[in-house]
Amino acid sequence: MRIEHVAIWVKDIEKMRQFYQTYFNASVNDLYHNPIKKFNSYFLTFTDGARLEIMERADIQTGHPGDSLGWAHIAFSVGSKEKVEELTTRLVQDGYACTNGPRITGDGYYESVVEDPEKNLIEITE
């Protein structure tokens, strides 16, 4: 058994698609649009086969501020400490917030935590 994909509601689907394509090398399917439900989605596929579905619907526009129950973050392993530092630096230089790290965590990960365009947390791990 494996997780087939995870999904997240977003406010700006095109901005989020571009972010994950640019920084995390996601490949993207064609936009799915359901005019009756006013629903749009993309499946983003990463090099190891993991998939993230980004979805938007006009009536879903608010999230949970700060810490709340539910999903906390998504983590991407980039293969080395140097790559963690390089990607973190690139994201910060391009205006995205780094909320933690790069550092070695208490459970032994070398990681940084950055925010995507809609402030969802992304761990970038070794």
Rank of each mutant, 00 (worst) to 15 (best):
G108A: 06
G70L: 05
G95I: 04
I3L: 14
N100P: 00
D67I: 13
V6R: 09
S68Q: 08
E123R: 10
D107Y: 14
K83N: 11
L44H: 05
R57S: 09
H33K: 13
E56A: 10
K119A: 15
D59M: 08
L121E: 12
W9L: 09
M1S: 15
N120Q: 05
H73A: 05
A72E: 15
P117Q: 03
N120G: 00
D116Y: 00
E56L: 02
R57H: 09
K15Y: 00
Q61K: 13
E4G: 12
Y20D: 01
A7P: 05
R57L: 03
Y109C: 11
H33I: 14
S77L: 11
S68K: 10
Y42E: 07
V28D: 11
E86D: 08
Y42F: 15
T88H: 01
T105N: 09
G95R: 05
Y109V: 13
G79K: 05
D30T: 11
I124P: 00
L121M: 13
L44S: 06
I104Q: 14
V10C: 11
R17I: 05
T99K: 07
H5T: 07
D94M: 06
G66N: 04
S77C: 09
H64L: 14
V113S: 03
Y109R: 15
V28W: 12
A50N: 13
H33R: 14
L121D: 08
L44Y: 04
L52S: 06
E111G: 02
Y110E: 06
E4T: 11
E123A: 07
E14S: 09
T99Q: 08
F76D: 04
G101Q: 03
D48T: 08
G49M: 01
H73G: 04
D116L: 00
Y23E: 01
D48Q: 07
S112P: 05
E126V: 06
D116E: 01
Y23V: 00
L44C: 07
T89M: 10
W71R: 15
F24C: 04
G70R: 04
L87Q: 07
E126W: 01
A50L: 07
K83D: 08
I54W: 09
S68W: 10
V78D: 04
F76L: 05
E115T: 11
